[in-house]
């Protein structure tokens, strides 16, 4: 790592996966901006680890700093409270998740396969980051009204991906869709994912892909076509 020139831009620091973002203690001669940003990421990763062990309510600032391997003072240089640290963590995780979903969706031309790719990206991210999955899908709900509001907004932000499926459908299909179809699909999908995380089955989330694809495409394409796309390998 020392041999490589270090890009100090914020973008680059943000790309560090939290697990890799640990700095060796002591003097490392890295530019201050990088260190500051990195400390913040470590605190966020530390919070996610601590919370997956003890839950939001049981986690103390001491737990967070221990997992992050930074001092208590460093914590307070970045955040005023556990709640504020949680909000930062939540926003970071959701930004990453929505970026991945958006990119996967946009990469595919036809809508049904775009939906499949988007759901696939979401499941893959959550399955590969069990601590973050728990943080944003389960603990967010117990972390106070500010986060719950963001959680609701994040889920509702998935609605347009499905609404796009109305485009080009026959009048007959359109007449069958109700104003709340997309909301119900998104809610059903998220609720199933949360249930699996609560049940400790985060690693198996990707196995839900065919079911979720079939469930969400059925109102637009009918059962047979939705099932066909769901079962493609």
């Amino acid at each position: 790592m020392a041999a490589d020139p270090i890009d100090t831009s914020v973008e680059s620091a943000r790309n560090y996966p939290p697990e890799l973002a640990r700095l060796p203690p002591g003097r490392h001669g890295l530019p201050r901006e990088f260190v500051v940003h990195n400390q913040r990421e470590r605190l966020i990763a530390g919070l996610a680890e601590a919370i997956s062990e003890k839950g939001f309510a049981g986690t103390t600032i001491g737990d967070i700093t221990r997992h992050a391997a930074v001092s208590r003072r460093t914590f307070y240089e970045h955040f005023t409270s556990k709640d504020e640290c949680f909000v930062a963590a939540y926003d970071t995780v959701m930004a990453e998740l929505s970026e991945r979903v958006g990119a996967a969706f946009a990469e595919v031309d036809d809508w049904p396969h775009g939906v499949r790719a988007g759901i696939g990206a979401m499941l893959a991210f959550l399955a590969s980051e069990p601590n973050l999955a728990r943080l944003c899908m389960v603990e967010a709900l117990v972390a106070g009204p500010v986060v719950v509001e963001r959680y609701d907004a994040a889920i509702q932000s998935l609605v347009p991906y499905f609404k796009a499926g109305r485009e080009g459908r026959s009048p007959e299909v359109l007449s069958r869709l109700s104003p709340s179809t997309e909301e119900a699909l998104v809610g059903g999908m998220v609720s199933l994912i949360s249930r699996r995380i609560i049940a400790g089955k985060t690693a198996e989330l990707e196995g839900l892909l065919p079911d979720l694809v079939e469930f969400t495409l059925t109102p637009y394409l009918g059962s047979a076509e939705a099932a066909k796309i769901a079962r493609e390998s």
Binding site: L185, G187, L212
Partner: peptide
């Protein structure tokens, strides 16, 4: 027999989400 195994969970989750909202 071909319906997704999780169908009922997603339907109920969707209904509750709408009510929650």
């Amino acid at each position: 027999e071909d319906l997704p195994e999780t169908l009922e969970e997603t339907i109920i989750g969707g209904v509750f989400w709408i009510i929650y909202q």
